[in-house]
Amino acid sequence: MGVLLSVENVVGGYEFESLGKKIYVDAVSNVSISIDDNVVFGIAGESGCGKSTLLKIMYGYIISPLKVLRGNIKIFTSNDSYIDVLSISSELRRSRVWWKEISWIPQNAMNVLNPVEKIKDHFVEILTTHERIDKDDALKIATEYVESFGLSKSVLDAYPHQLSGGMRQRVVIALALLLKPKVVLADEPTSALDVVVQRGVLQILLNKQSELKNTVVLVSHDMGVHAMVTNKLAVMYAGKVVEIGRTEDIFEKPLHPYTKALIDSLPRIGDKTLRTGLAGSPPDLRNPPPGCRFHPRCPFAMDICRKEEPPMIEIEKNRFVSCWLYIRR
C-alpha cells in the first residue's frame, strides 16, 4: 500500500467583500493528510468545520469566492510521478483528470444530473467524450453496467426526477465510478436518504470499492456512518484536522477532547444514561481564536492552548493528534 492522494499544507477559504471591507473566512487552515490506495478514508466533523471545502479543493473545483492560498494536492500515478491537481490548467483537469482519475459524488444528486436529460444520456456523454467509444456501444456498456448497481435497465430511459432519492444517488455513484477513477470523493452521499436506503447505497459503494480497489474519501457528519463504513478517519474542527487514525482505534480510544465529545454525545439504542453535549458553539472563522481553535469549548484547556497552536504529532504508529495534552514539554 502506498500513498495515492496527498494533501499538503492546504490553506483555503472564502473571500468576499462586505460593506467595502474585504472579509476572509478561514475554512481550511493548513491541512495535510496523506491517503493510501485501496482504502475508505472518512472525514468527520460538524457543519462549518471545512470538510466539504477540503473535498472541493481536493477535486480542484475552485470557484469564487473559494480561494486556495497555499498548498498542493497530488494524485500519485506511480511511485514518483503525480498529477498536481491545483496547478494544472482547468482544461486539462476537465479533459484528463476529472472522471478518469478522480470523481465527485455530491450530497444532492441533482447537482450532477441534468434535469432535462435522460439517465442514459449522462452515461453516453461521459463515455463518448472521455473514451473513443461511439454512441451505440456506449449505450450497450451503460445497459450492462447499471445492473451491477442493482438498478433495472428501465432506469436509463427515465428522467432524473422520476427516480427516488436512493436510485438517483445510485445513478450518481455509477457515473462517478464509470471510468474507474483511482480516487472517489463522496460528500455526504447518503445524508439526504432514509436509513434503510442509506444502508443499501453505502453497501453498494463499499462493494464497488473492494472490486475496483480504489480509494473512497467519504465526508460525513454522522459518526455512526464512519463507524460502519470507513477504515481510516480524520476529524476536523473549525478548519483544522485535529485527529487522524484507524477508525477502530479512534472509536476505541479517541484522543482529542473534541473527538471524544463528539462520540460521547451520541445516544445509543438500549442505553438511557444521561449524555452531555459540548457547551458553546464553533468559532467564527472570520476571526478564529488564537492558539488551539477548540480551546474555548475544551474542558481540559490550559494556558498554552490559548496562546499557541498545537502541532500535529504521531503518538503511535498511524495515530496522529493535534493537542497540547499529548505533548510533553
Binding site: 436509513v195 434503510v196 442509506q198 444502508r199 454522522d222 459518526m223 455512526g224 456512518v225 464512519h226 463507524a227 460502519m228 463504513v229 477508525t247 477502530e248 472509536f251 476505541e252 462520540i263 451520541l266 445509543r268 439504542i269
Partner: peptide, 11 residues
C-alpha cells in the same frame, strides 16, 4: 429492518 439499518457509532 429500520432498527438494523441505523448506523451505530460502535465498530
Amino acid at each position: 429492518t429500520l432498527l438494523l439499518s441505523v448506523p451505530i457509532p460502535d465498530i
